[in-house]
Structures are given as C-alpha cells and as structure tokens.
Amino acid sequence: MTCVQPNSQPPAPRRAHGHDYEIESLEEFDRVVASGSLAGHRVQSVDLTDRTFALLGTDTAESVFLGCEMEPDAAAKVRAGGALVFPPIPGLPFDPYRGDLHGPDELFEGLVDSGYDTTPDARTYRWYQETRTDGDIFASMLRSIHDDAISDALDEHVAGARVVGIMGGHALERDSAAYAGAARLGRRLTRSGLTVATGGGPGAMEAANLGAYAAPFDDGMLDSALELLAKAPHFTPSITDWARTAFDVRRSWPGGGASIGIPTWFYGHEPPNAFASHVAKFFVNAVREDGLLARSNAGVVFLPGAAGTVQEIFDNATPNYYESRGEPTPMVLVNRAHWTEKLPTWPLLQALAADRPMAPRIALVDSVEDVPEALARLTTGAAS
C-alpha cells in the first residue's frame, strides 16, 4: 500500500452532484481523457495497463486511483502529478475497490468443474475467517473499503427504482409449498414493476429471487424450475449440488428477470443464491441488514422465519417508529399463525405502532397471495 508522504496533501473530497467524477470502466476512462483532464476524478478498479500513453499525457492532479493496474512508469507519473494511488492487493480472493455489484457467475466461478470450495465466494469466506479475529488493521481496512464500495455501487444500482424487500428464513426447502409460494410472490411483484430485493441467501430468499428470475417467462417455467430444484432441496449437506441445480435452471432458461440479493460472509455457512442478478455481498452483517431495509422504499414483506427474520422486523420497525428515514414504509407480515402464535411478533408490532404514523403502514396477512393487495393498500396509508 502506497502511503501519503507527511508533507503532501491528500486529494480533496469531491463535491460534485451525483457520481459523474467516478470512473468505473475503460469506456468512462477514455471519455474523460478525451475531454482533456483526469484531475479530481476517482478511478475505481479499472485495468489501465493498456492506457500508459493516456496517463502520461493527462492531468491527474487531486485524482485517486483505487485498485487500478498500471505500468510502473504510469504509476510513478500519476503520483508525481498529485494523484493518490491505492494499488491492487495481490493474493486477495476479492476486489476491495470494486465499482460494481457482484454477479452470481463471478461468485460461483469454478463451481461446475471444481465444486463450491474453489469458488471466489468460498475462498473469500475462508479469508474472512482467518482475518476477522487476528486484529490485523490492514485486513480490517480492506473489509471496510470493500463494504463501502459495495454500498456505493448498490446506491447507484437502485437509484430511481421502487424496491420491495422480501425477508424470510434460510431453512425453507425447495420442494416445499412455502418455497413455491415465495417464488410466485417474487414473480408477481416483479411483473408489477417492483424491484425485488432479498437477503440473497437460500430458502425463502432464494425463492423470491427465483420468482423474479422467472418473471419474463410463461407461468409453466416456474413449475418446471421448481421440479428441477427439488433434486437438491437444501444447501446441506452439499452446497455444490444445491448451487449446481440452480445454474442448471439458469442454463435451461437464460435471460431471466433482474433482482437484488444482499447476503453476507458473516454467515459463511449460508451461501448466496444464484438467481439474484445483482449481488451486494458484505462482510459486516449489520451494514448488510440496514442497507437492505433502508433501500426497500416500496415496503418490506416478512415471510415466516426465525431469529434473523424477527430481528429484521424490528430493525425495520425502529426507523418507522421514529420516522428517521422520513415517511414510514409498508410492512407486511405473512402467515397469521406464525406471527401471532409460534413467534408472537405481530402483537408487539401493533403495540409499537399504536397512535404513530406507522400504524396505517403495517399489515398481517394469511398468505403470499394477499401481499400485493396489502402493499398497495399500505402505500396509500389507508388503515389496515
């Protein structure tokens, strides 16, 4: 890592509107260079080994290069020209400076030929396990930079979208009626124009992402996909078999609908699912959970789950209660018996909401079939 010399001044933070000063691809780099200057720009994880001539001839004052491959002469020139350079870190199984979200093909690279343990996702989890408790400030910094970069990429991706979060337990098996119901819900919400976002893992989360993936196809596609997935109903005992069946579905029906998965390496035993087209995977679970809920501006649906889902209900209820994010967003709990008898969360949520602006924005419904109508009603603020 190149350090700033004590007598030098770090590049000033940008105060431009939007992210027009960020460069995240070669195409953007070439366009900016053609305008005559890279001064003040942030170049994020772009391979510039073939752009030495451009770097040598362009103003780079107060610019920042994050994880960009460069020839030594080019790196020396941009530093001398007033840029701050954070070079790539060799040997890491992830890119801490990335400018875009993960994709399932990237996270599961090598799955088909060599199994899950060889994938970038599995190797990153092992790195996390090795470094999370050793007190190494460098590893901690890399995790923080990565999570901040992913948050930035997620903000860019959801800008202008109406996002509905779907929460639920990871233990739901693919051959269950509840899994099929969650998939139909994801499909229906996607077809209505909403962007489905989940915790990005297995179970109910995978089902909702699968439904979004199935949205462009005829209804029979989802039934066929469920039949295929039932061959590996759970991610235990073999993540490899579980994930391979998902990619079998993707190969059989390429070009599915888009959705978002927001998983975490904190739960390393819990792999991401392959049906979310855009994956924002975090090291810090608290950042992941808050980020998912905060971006669900069209409401959050809570399918039956256990401790994690209960936590998410009240993580979402708190800013709704205090209106810390502005107007409360809709919250729909699904399965009356689960949330009033097995885990009686609904009575407490009702008590919290009493006489608060969030009161007309919460609902308890019997099944996933009731969710779209409930979301529409709560969005208008009508009493539930």
Rank of each mutant, 00 (worst) to 15 (best):
I239T: 14
L222F: 07
A177G: 13
T190E: 00
R187P: 00
L48W: 07
P344A: 12
A376T: 13
L111G: 09
E24Q: 12
V85A: 08
G91H: 04
L111W: 05
G57D: 13
Y116W: 15
A177C: 01
I313D: 11
A122V: 09
D219K: 00
T380E: 14
T52M: 08
A177M: 05
V284M: 06
T60M: 03
I150K: 03
G268M: 04
D136V: 03
D73H: 11
D50H: 11
V33H: 06
R250I: 13
A74N: 05
D366Y: 02
I260D: 00
A39R: 08
L222D: 09
I239C: 07
V301D: 04
K77P: 00
L228M: 15
V196D: 02
T309A: 12
P90D: 12
N320G: 07
P216G: 07
G257K: 02
F94P: 06
T124G: 07
A274C: 10
R51P: 09
S151K: 05
G268T: 02
D366T: 09
T190F: 01
D223M: 03
F314K: 10
A197I: 05
V284C: 08
T318R: 15
I145H: 00
F247S: 11
D20N: 05
G257F: 02
A83K: 00
A382L: 11
D370G: 00
P13T: 07
V301E: 05
Y322P: 01
V368E: 14
A363S: 14
T118Y: 11
A363Y: 03
I137D: 11
P271S: 06
P271G: 10
E270I: 02
P304F: 01
G36W: 01
Q350H: 00
D117I: 09
I145K: 00
F65N: 05
K231P: 00
D315V: 13
R126V: 15
I166E: 05
L343G: 00
A39T: 03
D175Q: 10
L66P: 01
H157M: 10
V85K: 04
P90A: 12
T118D: 14
T2I: 14
A306Q: 06
Y321L: 15
A34P: 00
I260G: 02
G115A: 10
F302S: 09
L352S: 05
V371R: 04
D47P: 04
D315T: 15
G99P: 08
E69C: 09
G299Y: 05
A83C: 01
W253A: 05
P357C: 03
V33C: 11
L107H: 04
G81M: 09
D175K: 09
D100V: 13
R325H: 15
G200A: 04
G193D: 03
L48Y: 03
I239H: 12
P347H: 05
M70N: 04
A75V: 10
L56R: 13
A258N: 08
G261I: 06
Y125H: 14
P254Y: 01
V32Q: 13
G169V: 06
N320W: 01
L189V: 04
V43N: 03
V332I: 08
F53S: 13
I166C: 02
A298E: 06
S63C: 08
R250H: 00
T236I: 10
E62A: 13
G305P: 08
R295L: 04
T379N: 12
